[in-house]
Amino acid sequence: MRAKAMLLPFLLWLALFILVPLGLVVYYGVTVEEPIPYEEIMRADGSVHYRLADGTLRESEPYETRTRFSLANVSRFFDPMYVKLMGRSFYVAFCTTLICLLLGYPVALILTGKGFRHRNLLLLLIILPMWMNFLLRTYAWLSLLENSGLVNHLLEAMGFAKQQFLYHENAVVLGMVYNFLPFMVLPLYTVMEKIDHSQLEAAADLGANPFQRFLRILLPFSLPGVLEGITMVFVPAVTTFVISQLMGGGKVPLIGDIIQQQFGKANDWHFGATMSLLVMVVVLAFMYALNRADTENAGKGEVRIW
């Protein structure tokens, strides 16, 4: 009973800041707003007035709107333009996740290495940038990589030609890899730290070469960390909009940018909410598939992935 009472603030928090906003997104997502129905009536003298559904007459055109249930925005989304945009966002997020994994895995491995001395310092250096707002850090990339930026000034000073680093997809991927890499390294590190090194030593004693040791022991045991890292990077990468705006110069729109556009510029919260919901469904399906892979593996007695 006491334990339950202590849970209460947490449950309230959950309801207030997760369930209610989510409910609002669902509500906006499956409704549309439209003008209230009315009839235009021409008077004998040629002037116009308006009759509402309940029979009241108005001199000026009615401005009120009503909200009703409709899936019109869902079908509006299944247009080649938006589907292509979604595909593009997933592709960019996939590239980002892959690069983060390829970079993050060795880093985590080195960090957990037995003889590694400066572990805490290096961990701190990985986490440190996260204490600063990511927007500021992305702006910093702009001052570095702009055509008139620091790197190009250096290149010119050394006699090389100017390069355009920003304003295309690669720049967006760079921005995302930079921002999300710690989300890959940290879960990997946590899982790898727990791997029993005596198993690796035993394998070595029994004649397994480094490649076999990696494939048969390290990789299977670190798999939960890999899956968690993938989720932690992939999900924010699919939905980001600031990084693509700043690094891509608005020329690499992702689904997040288009959702933001609905709220910020088009003033169409309903369509924006529908898009958010659909992205959420796809991401959930993706995470479910990952989770399945994880539990299926754990279910097998022998940890072996291929």
Binding site: P253, I258, Q261, A266
Partner: peptide, 19 residues
């Protein structure tokens, strides 16, 4: 009013045509 959506649609068509 609601015609703002026409602009939103055209704008999305323009920026997605780039790649």
């Amino acid at each position: 009013g609601d015609d703002t959506r026409i602009y939103d649609r055209i704008w999305t068509e323009i920026i997605t045509s780039i790649y």
